[in-house]
Write a protein that binds this DNA or RNA. Structure first.
Length: 564
RNA sequence: UGGGGUGUCGUCAAGCGGUAAGACACAGGUCUUUGGAACCUGGACUCGGAGGUUCGAAUCCUCCCACCCCAGCCA
């Protein structure tokens, strides 16, 4: 079971469970379940629920089932089932042999429905969908009772069997619970329990043409699996009376407690399956696993670690408040984990040629560089140095602004793990004025320490040897939306898509040692951020890196402030 | 104007009648061959508002206000 180094979580749900344990409500058992509908990929919001459900099971020594809530064949598929299984496992959780499908319960659910009909608690209604809607009433007015409400039990039974047998058109009849059309809770106004739907189910094929609704299937699936705590999101609060009503009428031996918590909202992105599907199908992203997506598949490809996501889920807490969690917390958790795990390496994103004039042509030497300055056990690597190097364009300025202490004409800078160099000349493009090459001299004394006269050189920049580095493509990702809450913009959230959410740099140079880096492996490019070998597009011949997250950039803040 | 929920720092979130945890973000600083990391420091004179109970209230009571959810044969 996955471990998280965060402080032991406690929340109102665990308090409720503690109380149940004290009162022996469930004979000391704790059984939860994570019940996704396989009609889309899991996202970070689901991760919160996964961590909660599996976390609680682990905390109390109970169990957590993985259950596909596949009661509506339209939109569900095996691809989604497989992705969900893969994602939950990747997140670090284990459900043993307890992978279940609501669709496996179809026969039993049907029998429960028959039982309900026999008890006079459900009836076949032959109103159209429109008529049912019209008669449901409004928020302030009660609904009208269906003319079919008092059909004899035998007739209901017969009709329901015929519904199952496929003797009616889609929508001709539905099975409804007989509760209270005047209930102030609209959910209780004779809710539909079964509908006729001639759609092939990805698992049951055409065996069924009637399918149970969520309210009917969910509580009974929970009961069948002997779940004790059925944890769901706030929007199901109104459904709890129905959840309880169905289980009460059927007199089942296991009646779980439904508990609702607030779903996660994350700033600068969207976390609704419908919106994510839209981004995918309309081609705004390359797929469910596009590294910009808040899906687990996307985050995995981007390079986020499961540990970081689990820590994040622990830190955001669980409560009933509507929330919009700042994405910087997620990024913080990712940096925190990667800072410890990721080996350091040097890479130049936008190369600027640097010639060390006083370094002998054809000479080459190697520096031993620690893979992690704070963790010697991660070892060292040898990085070649020569007369011609590349540095990042950002690390040289013709007219340096205040407080800039990188390379500039006449200035000195430390090449990380190497010499101090001084800029003596620059070559500009005669037409554009762009600096295309910088000439420096190096001080051979400074290989392992300060200059002999002891003067300070503040700037440290990263570099690679021109002849001893390898090319790479690097993909820089920015938030998908420039506004904190694109959802408040409702229907036209697509208008707020950040057109610059992906920037591809194709002429980067990285240490040659990276050539053997396996897909998915993560590194810190010193001073830049954390990068991950793309698992889809990278190859031995053509390295492709995804920028997972930048390092905290104090200089960006300073220069931003200076500009103002 | 029915019902169900929720309101504590910019954002999350503890707090459960004894005098406002923590995290992220932010702002200062120390240190530093990553302007990284680490480490220090600062911040709610107050808990949606107003009354009330109490020696004492974010916690209990009353009223008010704001926001979210519900009128799919989706989940």
């Amino acid at each position: 079971m996955a471990q998280t180094n965060a402080s032991p979580p406690s929340d109102f749900i665990r308090e409720i469970i503690d109380e149940h344990l004290r009162s022996d409500r469930f004979q000391g058992r704790v059984a939860t379940r994570f019940p996704p509908e396989p009609n889309g990929y899991l996202h970070i919001g689901h991760a919160k629920s996964v961590c909660l459900n599996f976390g609680i099971a682990a905390h109390y020594g109970g169990t957590c089932n993985l259950r596909m809530d596949d009661t509506d064949p339209s939109g569900e598929s095996l691809e989604y089932v497989e992705s969900i299984i893969n994602d939950v496992r990747w997140l670090g959780f284990d459900w043993g042999d307890r992978l279940f499908f609501a669709s496996d319960y179809f026969e039993r659910l049907f029998q429960f429905a028959v039982q309900l009909i026999k008890a006079g608690k459900a009836y076949v209604c032959s109103l159209s969908a429109d008529e049912i809607r019209e008669q449901r009433g409004t928020l302030t007015e009660p609904g009208k009772e269906s003319p079919y409400r008092n059909r004899p039990i035998e007739e209901n039974l017969h009709l329901f069997e015929r519904m199952r047998a496929g003797q009616f058109e889609d929508g001709a009849h539905v099975l409804r619970a007989k509760i209270d059309m005047a209930s102030p809770n609209i959910t209780m106004r004779d809710p539909v329990l079964y509908r006729i739907k001639r759609a092939a189910h990805y698992r049951t094929g055409t065996t069924w043409c009637i399918y149970p609704m969520y309210d009917f299937a969910h509580c009974l699936s929970d009961s069948i699996e002997k779940i004790t705590h059925s944890i769901c999101t706030l929007e199901f609060e109104n459904n709890r009376p129905l959840y309880d009503w169905i289980l009460d009428q059927l007199n089942v031996d296991c009646h779980p407690q439904q508990i609702e918590f607030a779903r996660l909202n994350l700033s600068y992105t969207v976390l609704s399956k419908r919106r994510l599907i839209e981004l995918v199908t309309k081609g705004y992203v390359t797929g469910w696993d596009d590294p910009r997506m808040p899906t687990l598949a996307g985050m995995r490809r981007r390079g986020y670690t499961p540990e970081a996501i689990r820590t994040f889920c622990a830190r955001i807490g669980v409560a009933k408040n509507e929330n919009l969690v700042d994405i910087s917390l997620l990024e913080h958790c990712v940096r925190e984990d990667l800072n410890e795990q990721a080996p350091r390496v040097m890479g130049v994103l936008r190369p600027l040629r640097v010639v060390i004039d006083n370094y002998p042509e054809g000479q080459r030497e190697e520096f031993e560089c620690p893979n992690h300055p704070q963790n010697p056990s991660m070892g060292v690597r040898r990085v070649p140095f020569s007369r011609v190097l590349y540095i990042d364009r950002e690390d040289f300025q013709k007219n340096p602004p205040k407080k800039y202490y990188r390379l500039a004409p006449g200035r000195e800078v430390r090449l990380r793990y190497s010499y101090i160099i001084k800029c003596v000349r620059m070559v500009e493009d005669t037409k554009t004025g762009e600096v295309i090459e910088v000439h420096c001299t190096y001080d051979p004394e400074t290989r392992n320490g300060p200059p002999s006269d002891g003067h300070k050189v503040d700037g440290v920049i990263h570099w690679v040897s021109a002849d001893h580095s390898v090319p790479a493509e690097v993909r820089l990702y920015d938030r998908l939306f420039p506004v904190a809450d694109p959802m408040t913009k409702e229907d036209d959230f697509l208008k707020y898509l950040n057109p610059k959410s992906l920037e591809t740099l194709s002429s980067c140079r990285v240490e040659r040692g990276l050539l053997g880096a396996g897909p998915g492996s993560r590194y810190q490019f010193e001073r830049l951020g954390y990068f991950c070998v793309d698992s889809v597009d990278s190859s031995e011949k053509a390295l492709v890196f995804n920028r997972i997250v930048t390092l905290r950039d104090t200089w960006a803040k300073i220069s931003e402030k200076e500009k103002r």
